[in-house]
């Protein structure tokens, strides 16, 4: 189990135990974390699983593929540390990961 903290746009923190191999999106949905819609269920087709990754962890979340980059390019309120959470696979390296969810996914 890997501990991940989700902070919503109002600052409320929620900790979950994520499973190695699932995505940061799946861990959120499984634990009913608000602020991540994930309409396409992880197909990298909807951009409704947008999160901001704590910059300290950003290098550990892996490379962005071209598809994700282009999708993010059109998301609202994108920042340098934006990722689609369905494209981040949970690994032991991510223990303690902190991500913040945007005010809206649409």
């Amino acid at each position: 189990m890997v501990k991940i903290t989700y902070i919503d746009h109002e600052g409320t923190r929620r900790d979950v135990d994520a499973k190695v191999g699932e995505s940061v999106m799946e861990a959120a949905v499984r634990n009913n974390i608000p602020g991540i819609d994930a309409d396409c269920g992880g197909a990298c087709a909807c951009a409704t699983c947008h999160v901001y990754v704590d910059p300290e962890y950003l290098p550990k979340t892996g490379e962005q593929e071209a598809m994700e980059q282009s999708m993010l390019d059109f998301a609202d309120a994108v920042q340098d540390n934006s990722r689609l959470s369905c494209q981040i696979s949970v690994s032991d390296d991510l223990e303690g990961l902190v991500v913040t969810t945007p005010e809206s996914q649409h």
């Binding site: 396409c40 197909a43 990298c44 087709a45 909807c46 598809m67 649409h106």
Partner: peptide
């Protein structure tokens, strides 16, 4: 809640259609 523009996707081989 907002009514979004209808959308759909399909994955075949390495091709993603949206």
């Amino acid at each position: 809640p907002a009514e979004d523009v209808p959308w759909f996707w399909s994955d075949q081989y390495n091709i993603k259609l949206q």
